[in-house]
Every structure is written in C-alpha cells, then in structure tokens.
Design a binder for these strands. Structure first.
Lengths: 164, 164
DNA sequence: GCTGAAATTCTGGAGTG
DNA sequence: CACTCCAGAATTTCAGC
C-alpha cells in the first residue's frame, strides 16, 4: 500500500458518498484546485483504491422485482472456483460476488424478474457454473433496502404522512 | 411505477456500470442528445429509479482492513426497527443495510479498521441501536470480492504471472 | 427531444514554492 | 514534486422551438 494521505482519504470518502461529484466541488470541499483533485483521482484509480463508479438503481425500474441473496456452500474451494466466480460476476443481473468465512463460503447479490428466473439462476449455479464444487445453496429475498453502496435510500418504507 | 421506456432502461444499465459516464458519452451510446439524457436522468432521479451515485472503493486504502457481513436475528420486527436501521445506515463505515427473509432478518455490510472495532460494532448493535429487538448476530468476514455494486473488480486474487 | 448559446467544468502545460 | 494558475477544449445547462 502506498502514498495515501489525508486528502486522498477525503476524496475516497466523498466519492463513495457521491460518485458523480464534480472535480470543482471536490476541490472546494477538500481545499485543493480541480487540477490537483484530478491528478489524485487518477493516482487513486491506478493504485486500485477506486475500482469504479456506479449508480444505485432501484431494480424494480428494470423489471427486476426479486432482489436475492444467494449463499453457496462449497465442497472444495480452489483456484478453479475463482474463474467460476468471475464468470458469474459477468452476468448483468449480478450485483455482488464475495468469498467469505462461515458455513457458506460464497455470497451473491443478484436481481431477477420473477421467481422462476431466480430458480433458474440457482439451478445454473450447480449445472453451469460451479458444478461439483457446489454442495448447496441458501436463498434469501431482500424486502427492504436502507443503505446500499454507501448511499442511504431516501425513500423510507414507512410512507411520509400526508399533509392535511 | 411510471413512464420508463427502453432508452431510460439503457441509461440505468449504463450508469450502473459507469456512474461517472458523461452526458455526451451516454448520448452517443444511446442515441440521444446530451440535453435529453440530462432531462431523462433528472426524471429518473425524481422518480426514485436512481437513488444515488457511488465510487467503489477498496476499503484497505481507508485503513478498513476488515470487511464484514453481520446478520441479525430479531425477536420482534416492527416500525421502530426501521428507525434503528436508518440510524445504523448513517454510519460512514456501513456500506449496506437490508431487511430480508430467513432466519436472520437483517443483513449489514460494514468495514472496520480491526477486529476490536468490529467487536465493538456488534456490541453496539444490541446496546445502542437495536436493544431488546435483537436476539443474536452472526458475523462473517469477506475474504475476496469479485463484483460489488455492479462493478467487476479488475484486480484478481490470483496475481498475474510475472514476465520473465 | 432538439438546437444553440452561455455558464461551468475539465484538461494539460507552464510556472512556483 | 505536488500544487496552482491559466487558457483552450469539452461538457453542462437552459431557453426556445
């Protein structure tokens, strides 16, 4: 790890909260010229501190009404699994793919149009992607999102009371 | 749900993959003028289709070396829990907060400097945030991220072979 | 949703400490 | 060497159609 100072950290934190902040805005907030911010961001990107930029999208507007968390228990976890997970990552409806500790070693965040499509995906995990490496999967459905990707959802589940 | 057409969906998908895409780039890719793209994005934002924008940051560069998944089993889940989850969402090191189906109804993605800080956070969940609503928590640690927030990590765990 | 003009931002190079 | 300044380029923004 190299050459990250206070200002760089502020840039990272700010961009995590607002990925579309302008160089000028960042400069004002942090106390640097836009040109310096630009140089630092380019440095942070090439260091791998910034992996990319993303909009937090409500999946329902893309006709993805089922947001699921799929946990997978593996029989064996080796380098071949890395390639398989990478292939899963390339699917557009897959939002996140992680290896983790615990009984289920893999966690996948993915969105689906409907339950059959979710079912089909889980089936493809063993049939197409993970094969004999997969022992079993546990599926949960997301019912409410309070924060995602560092962005707080403004729309509360409990609807604001109407004015009278 | 209202008035989302093909072009809007393309904008959402494109912004999910590159949240910093310029209006001009989006216009070229989708076949609209930058001004129209802007109008549509503003519409999508006010409709709640776009919740916000975020940079995908490697937490290690913010000295957050522990990436954890904390699942919480609730004794009772009511509207008061909503406020508690909202308060948890406001913490900077918390990346995601979800309500879901299953044995554990809450899932939290959060980053920590070290294990004591993680331990402290889990303790604060029952002491400060959820109180008697919380029955127990299950903690996993993320060991590898393949995709996050719709962005594929370029840096593979298996290091590229050195040239010779 | 487009055009066109004005405002803002971005960008790269030269200069400064 | 990182930063600022500055001018030209690109983008964004807004009005009118």
């Amino acid at each position: 790890m190299a050459s990250i100072d206070e200002k760089d950290e502020e840039i990272l934190k700010e961009l995590r909260k607002n990925g579309r902040a302008t160089l000028t805005e960042l400069g004002r907030k942090i106390g640097l010229s836009p040109a310096s911010i630009k140089n630092r961001i380019e440095k942070l990107e090439s260091l791998g501190a910034i992996k990319g930029y993303s909009a937090i999208v409500d999946p329902a507007f893309l006709n993805e009404f089922i947001q699921a968390i799929i946990e997978v228990e593996l029989l064996v976890d080796n380098e071949a699994v890395d390639r398989m997970l990478y292939n899963i990552s390339r699917l557009d409806n897959v939002i996140g793919v992680y290896r983790k500790t615990g009984e289920f070693q893999i966690l996948i965040r993915a969105n689906f149009k409907d339950v059959p499509q979710l079912k089909e995906f889980v089936k493809s995990l063993s049939v197409k992607y993970l094969g004999k490496n997969m022992k079993r999967a546990k599926v949960s459905v997301i019912m409410d999102t309070f924060k995602e990707g560092g962005v707080i959802m403004q729309e509360r589940k409990t609807r604001r009371r109407r004015r009278r």
